[in-house]
Amino acid sequence: MTLLTRNDYAIRAIRPDEWERVKQLRLDALRDPVAHLAFLEDYEEAAARPDSFWQDRAVGSGTGSSTAHQFIAEAPNGAWAGTVTMLIEEAGVEDWAGYPVERRQGHVVGVFIRPEHRGKGLIEALFDAGLTWAWERKAEGARLFVHKENARAQAAYRRIGFEPSGRVVAFSKNEAESELELVLERDA
């Protein structure tokens, strides 16, 4: 699937053979000044992963499997400007935080737009691709988690239509590390 946004950026799924670019984009995202608010891993942890991890990740999210799909925004010059990954969570299982998943839903992770490409509508286009993919797989809604101090990301997600669910997840005993769950209903 390829969609074009304004400014001629192509929005498309990654291909399994693009694992080195997937790795590089993730490492670049983890160097972003607000990465500590946006991602659950740090640069050193990701950089230490073997190539086989990145190869498996690209195959898993680049083949359109039933559980994960990674989308990128590709600039006219071929540079990868940003990414969004959509996961499918099944009703009846526990999520990564130990909460029950009550319905089939999309779960947005790994959101990143390179600073020089921000403000061009790419986040909306990437989310559109990810949500379309989730809806095609009969997801009833979608969710994501955002750090309570990450106001820029919260504003972007609300523009797309995500709203707070009221759930707050703490990743440590430090309340400053809390994440807010935002949800989007399919009919929204």
Rank of each mutant, 00 (worst) to 15 (best):
residue 161 G to V: 03
residue 90 E to G: 02
residue 63 T to K: 05
residue 50 P to A: 07
residue 82 G to Q: 02
residue 18 E to I: 11
residue 132 T to V: 10
residue 107 H to G: 03
residue 86 M to E: 03
residue 40 L to H: 13
residue 159 R to Y: 11
residue 153 A to L: 06
residue 95 D to G: 07
residue 166 G to W: 07
residue 97 A to P: 05
residue 58 A to P: 08
residue 155 A to H: 13
residue 50 P to F: 07
residue 153 A to V: 06
residue 82 G to Y: 02
residue 132 T to E: 10
residue 8 D to P: 06
residue 64 G to P: 04
residue 146 V to I: 12
residue 4 L to T: 15
residue 176 A to V: 08
residue 93 V to W: 10
residue 186 R to S: 07
residue 27 L to Q: 04
residue 156 A to Y: 04
residue 96 W to S: 14
residue 150 N to D: 14
residue 155 A to Y: 09
residue 122 L to S: 00
residue 177 E to I: 03
residue 138 K to Q: 14
residue 58 A to D: 05
residue 133 W to H: 04
residue 113 I to M: 01
residue 173 K to A: 15
residue 183 V to L: 12
residue 112 F to T: 00
residue 37 L to M: 11
residue 17 D to I: 10
residue 13 A to W: 02
residue 26 R to T: 13
residue 12 R to A: 01
residue 174 N to K: 15
residue 40 L to C: 12
residue 85 T to G: 04
residue 109 V to P: 00
residue 81 A to L: 05
residue 30 L to P: 07
residue 48 A to C: 06
residue 127 F to Y: 13
residue 8 D to E: 11
residue 76 P to F: 08
residue 124 E to T: 11
residue 33 P to C: 09
residue 187 D to A: 13
residue 126 L to Y: 02
residue 151 A to E: 13
residue 2 T to D: 10
residue 100 P to C: 03
residue 108 V to S: 05
residue 176 A to S: 14
residue 17 D to F: 14
residue 77 N to W: 08
residue 54 W to Q: 06
residue 178 S to R: 15
residue 71 F to C: 04
residue 132 T to I: 10
residue 76 P to N: 06
residue 115 P to R: 02
residue 141 G to M: 04
residue 178 S to A: 14
residue 57 R to N: 11
residue 142 A to V: 02
residue 51 D to N: 11
residue 54 W to M: 05
residue 136 E to R: 10
residue 81 A to W: 03
residue 91 A to E: 03
residue 101 V to K: 01
residue 108 V to E: 02
residue 106 G to W: 07
residue 168 V to D: 14
residue 84 V to M: 08
residue 30 L to W: 06
residue 34 V to N: 15
residue 117 H to V: 03
residue 27 L to E: 06
residue 45 E to M: 12
residue 118 R to A: 04
residue 78 G to W: 07
residue 130 G to K: 03
residue 79 A to E: 14
residue 81 A to H: 04
residue 109 V to F: 02
residue 86 M to V: 06
residue 88 I to K: 00
residue 113 I to S: 00
residue 17 D to N: 15
residue 139 A to E: 03
residue 105 Q to W: 10
residue 123 I to Q: 04
residue 160 I to H: 09
residue 172 S to F: 14
residue 109 V to Q: 02
residue 139 A to P: 03
residue 92 G to C: 02
residue 98 G to V: 00
residue 129 A to T: 05
residue 86 M to S: 05
residue 50 P to E: 10
residue 108 V to M: 08
residue 148 K to C: 14
residue 57 R to G: 09
residue 97 A to E: 12
residue 76 P to D: 05
residue 126 L to M: 07
residue 59 V to P: 11
residue 119 G to L: 01
residue 149 E to H: 15
residue 110 G to D: 00
residue 5 T to I: 15
residue 98 G to T: 01
residue 59 V to I: 07
residue 43 Y to E: 01
residue 143 R to E: 13
residue 144 L to W: 09
residue 75 A to N: 08
residue 182 L to I: 09
residue 22 V to L: 13
residue 36 H to M: 13
residue 26 R to E: 11
residue 96 W to A: 14
residue 87 L to E: 00
residue 78 G to K: 06
residue 8 D to N: 12
residue 143 R to Y: 13
residue 171 F to W: 15
residue 129 A to E: 03
residue 92 G to L: 01
